[in-house]
């Protein structure tokens, strides 16, 4: 099993889409749009979405999931931080009823010749203490990789 490529405490995923940044930004911020696309067949689906699109405004989604055939639901919520249509969107990401720390999601959209590169960055994934940016984090990544590679 190869270790997941995390640098710092973040996950970065990127995709290029044949659509304008404006359209994609709308899909990321309008509840009725979120319900249409945010799903992975057989795995999870967004069932409800609320978006108060303004800095400090709250957002909330209800996710229906599937764990080995068993139906589950959970709620994720947070607050909008940066809203710069159609290029940047950031919000906090908190899973309800869980003890995991508050995390941050950032969307970067870059349009060129009819295509838009969408990059999503989920950070703060390990603990909020890490926001203090300590070198110590590399130790954890190294330990994790050493451990996982041994498996």
């Amino acid at each position: 099993m190869s270790p997941i490529s995390v640098c710092d405490d973040r996950i970065v995923q990127e995709v290029t889409i044949k659509a304008s940044a404006e359209r994609i930004f709308a899909a990321l911020t309008q509840p009725e749009e979120l319900l249409k696309w945010w799903a992975a067949e057989g795995k999870f689906r967004i069932m409800q979405a609320e978006c108060d699109l303004q800095p400090g405004g709250k957002w909330r989604i209800q996710v229906a999931g599937n764990c080995s055939g068993e139906a589950t639901t959970s709620t994720v919520y947070g607050q909008y931080q940066t809203i710069e249509p159609p290029r940047v969107l950031t919000y906090t990401w908190i899973r309800e009823n869980e003890d995991y720390p508050e995390t941050l999601v950032r969307w970067d959209l870059e349009e060129k010749d009819g295509y838009t590169t969408v990059r999503v960055t989920h950070s703060g994934l390990v603990t909020e203490g890490l926001r203090a940016r300590n070198d110590g984090w590399t130790i954890i990544v190294t330990l994790l990789q050493t451990y996982v590679e041994r498996q």
Partner: peptide
């Protein structure tokens, strides 16, 4: 989760 999410976004958009 994020990898599947952005693929789903791409599919919907295109």
């Amino acid at each position: 989760f994020w990898s599947e999410s952005i693929q789903s976004l791409k599919k919907y958009m295109e």
